[in-house]
Design a protein around this nucleic acid. Structure first.
Lengths: 166, 166
DNA sequence: ATGAAAATATCGACGCCTAAAATATCAAAA
DNA sequence: TTTTGATATTTTAGGCGTCGATATTTTCAT
């Protein structure tokens, strides 16, 4: 059993690398997957519809809430800051895809809604978008995808306990 | 059994929402998890070490490659564009945490390396960083984490086939 | 050797994103 | 009421990120 001959990590120079905790590797892998997919989607949205991912994302939130959403709601759902939502909304308003309506209940707030053109435009893009996602996940079988879905629920719960955010 | 009174989705106005393909939901959940964790790490890095996530990330790549990395290598590993790496590197050079050395093999290229101070600084941050990740994943048991790790490998393979990127 | 094509990095313009401060409104207590 | 504190949004300053263009160097087929 010849052990003992391992480098022995000289006092000063210190061992090399890849002694990462498994959790760290797990996180880095997850991040890599997400970036891979996100970058792909971003570039296809740009190439085929000349739109940015954040704008698409905002429209997507609105499509699910036809009654309109307040800026703060959008901010929460998109997981970005309020100031950021202001900018993205400005752009979409300029393109006629979205409107800011005064909230009847609260004069501080707006209700942001898709315009008819915004709705039309979004539906066309959403079809393609969904196909791209399908394609990206198509190398996993049904069972794997189901498992992954469940594990991510567990991760969300675990992380939320730490971050405080629901 | 009074059914029948459900909205019945009039011809034009069109049904509501949540008729998303399971894969789309899976992707959105994954994205939510990643954003949750990434935002948390970003804000702790800022609060406790006054550094940005991209700078930390770049330093982390260099720490694993003591021989130095070319700008293009950094770009690939960080999954961002070359122009972006130029900017982040400039900042780190300005802070004395990193140096650009001329590549002996190729006069177009640099070898970016951590300075001794950069190395010191990174090690301190990396310890905390790893603890944060551990904590965020701590609500999952060993088996779950292992499963997730495996499934992400499958996803990476699946997505890579589409994106072309290795 | 030469000239075309590919690789390496930077730059400029623009949009996303954050944190912190400013503005305006609301709600509730003094 | 008027103050106080919380909520909703915008603004500002600065860093990150993309794309496309440029300059330099290398590579490789002629």
């Amino acid at each position: 059993m010849s052990k003992k001959s391992v480098p022995a990590a000289s006092d000063t120079e210190t061992r090399a690398t890849s002694e990462h905790a498994p959790d760290l590797r797990l996180w880095l892998r997850m991040l890599a997957c997400t970036n891979l997919i996100e970058n792909h989607v971003r570039s296809r949205l740009r190439a085929e519809f000349d739109i940015t991912l954040p704008r698409f994302d905002l429209m997507s939130q609105l499509e699910r809430s036809p009654q309109g959403l307040k800026m703060g709601e959008l901010s929460k759902r998109m997981m970005v800051t309020g100031g950021n939502v202001t900018g993205i909304t400005d752009q979409l308003v300029g393109e006629g895809l979205v409107v800011r309506e005064d909230s009847p209940k609260d004069r501080r707030a707006y209700l942001v809604k898709l315009t008819p053109e915004g709705r039309r435009s979004f539906r066309k893009m959403a079809d393609s978008h969904e196909k791209w996602i399908l394609e990206l996940f198509s190398g996993m079988d049904e069972g794997q995808r189901g498992q992954l879905y469940g594990l991510l629920a567990a991760l969300k719960t675990s992380a939320s306990r730490v971050t405080g955010k629901k």
